[in-house]
């Protein structure tokens, strides 16, 4: 079971509590999560399903590689963390 955790900055705007999802790829993990918390989807992915430009997603402590297809594998012990990238900040 992958534990999916979202940055506090996102929790301010939309309901996205930490949850455990059973799946073997990031796409399937996030699809499973967004079934439970559908409003969070558009804050993380754009309408074509790609990770938003200024969102950073880590799987097992590594930044993901496939930001469009989300094909990165998720191991049984991997956690998924979703953060805001510092590149998107506004002073």
């Amino acid at each position: 079971m992958a534990q999916v955790t979202f940055a506090k900055a996102l929790q301010r705007h939309v309901t996205c509590p930490t949850a455990s999802i059973e799946a073997d790829s990031l796409r399937r993990v996030l699809d499973g999560y967004f079934v439970q918390f559908p409003a969070a989807r558009s804050y993380v992915l754009d309408e074509q399903g790609a990770v938003r430009r200024h969102i950073a997603v880590f799987v097992g402590g590594e930044l993901i590689v496939d930001r469009v297809g989300l094909a990165d594998p998720v191991g049984a012990d991997d956690d998924v963390h979703v953060f805001q990238a510092l590149s998107g900040g506004a002073a």
């Binding site: 996102l10 705007h13 938003r52 200024h54 805001q84 998107g88 900040g89």
Partner: peptide, 8 residues
């Protein structure tokens, strides 16, 4: 325009 989190 949330920047990180898209347009809402």
């Amino acid at each position: 325009d949330h920047g990180h989190f898209g347009v809402h």
